[in-house]
Design a protein around this nucleic acid. Structure first.
Lengths: 187, 187
DNA sequence: GAAAATATGGAGATAGTCTCCACTTGTCAA
DNA sequence: TTGACAAGTGGAGACTATCTCCATATTTTC
């Protein structure tokens, strides 16, 4: 998973500059900038940009990799300190909350989930794994039903991510989480 | 809503040819064809295509307008003949079933829901209205909770549509519906 | 059947993506 | 240090898809 290649000093510098500039622009909502311009703004050539990030999605993933990792870590932490069902609830609510504050992440996740293109979506696979773990623990504890898989929950999360720019986003997203949690509860 | 303009005979002919060819191609999974080629294949000029359908989404909507209308009609029918909660359940399960059989519709809906671009998404607004009606009736009948809006349900449907091409689609989509229905039930 | 209104088509302007390679920079062994 | 090789760079320009424009053609109207 982690780069087996030691990457030359200038290459790393350029790569970092690209990610930094992209993060800055994404935070401003400038997602759809001409791809070549990313390069110009980051102070590198077009070729360099393409060598490091062959697609827009690859760049987006790199930008949000950290953030996504942090979310996964948080899940593990919750899982270690709370009863399984509470960990799940906490995670899902926190997920929406975080997305609400970071539109760029929502947008990126929606895109990556939609284009399940193998190695590219490494980040979302990690997220899927985390959700699967949380669910499995709660199933094992007997607090949620066992006939609905993690894939279904991921679908609802996808729906949440995709709507990041709609006016009623927060209310609806909270509603989705409420439905999922209530729906999962053993009856 | 319906065209107030009587459209010249040749214009209508071309428009229909475009829709027919697009439907045929969509059914074959050829969504991403060069836009100009739609024109060539349908036997009209590029300009004509663009005059009738300024964007790919506009074309997609025209192709699936009928199908979507049929789904909405079905909802009304269910609502007229079944208890509110059963109508809702029937509609949602039928929705997934239909999507499973018509990948093109799923793809189109996902796109249209994502780009809530005003007049363009006329079709999805109709769908939203139908869902809202079904929910309202069930709320009124006291069989489902009243604190989760139609927007939340639409978000989950969006998630379902967006995943149309994933291998575990059907299982996961059924899971989502199960969660939504169980989650909506009054506790 | 001729004028007015409406629609056509496809060449070419425009703009974004991505490749290619002569050149620069970094690394490392001696 | 330094020389030689590997690794990386940048940006001109090829390529591709989108979309506009308007001289020409078809339909409708009177």
């Amino acid at each position: 998973m982690t780069d087996a290649k030691p990457l030359r000093a200038d290459a790393r510098r350029n790569r970092d500059a690209l990610i930094a500039k992209a993060r800055e622009l994404f935070a401003d909502g400038r997602f759809d900038l001409r791809f070549d311009d990313f390069a110009k703004l980051a102070g590198v050539g077009t070729g360099t940009l393409y060598r490091h990030f062959p697609t827009r999605e690859a760049l987006a993933e790199a930008v949000y990799r950290e953030e996504l990792t942090a979310m996964c870590d948080r899940a593990h932490e919750l899982q270690a300190t709370l009863p399984a069902d509470q960990a799940l609830e906490s995670f899902l609510r926190g997920f929406v909350d975080h997305l609400h504050r970071h539109e760029g992440l929502a947008r990126t996740l929606a895109t990556l989930m939609a284009t399940q293109s193998g190695a590219l979506a490494e980040g979302t696979q990690a997220l899927g794994q985390v959700v699967a773990d949380l669910l499995a623990a709660a199933v094992k504890a007997g607090t949620i039903r066992d006939d609905v898989g993690a894939g279904a929950v991921m679908m609802t999360l996808h729906g949440i991510c995709a709507a990041y720019d709609q006016p009623t986003y927060r209310t609806d997203a909270d509603g989705v989480i409420a439905l999922v949690l209530a729906g999962l509860r053993r009856t």
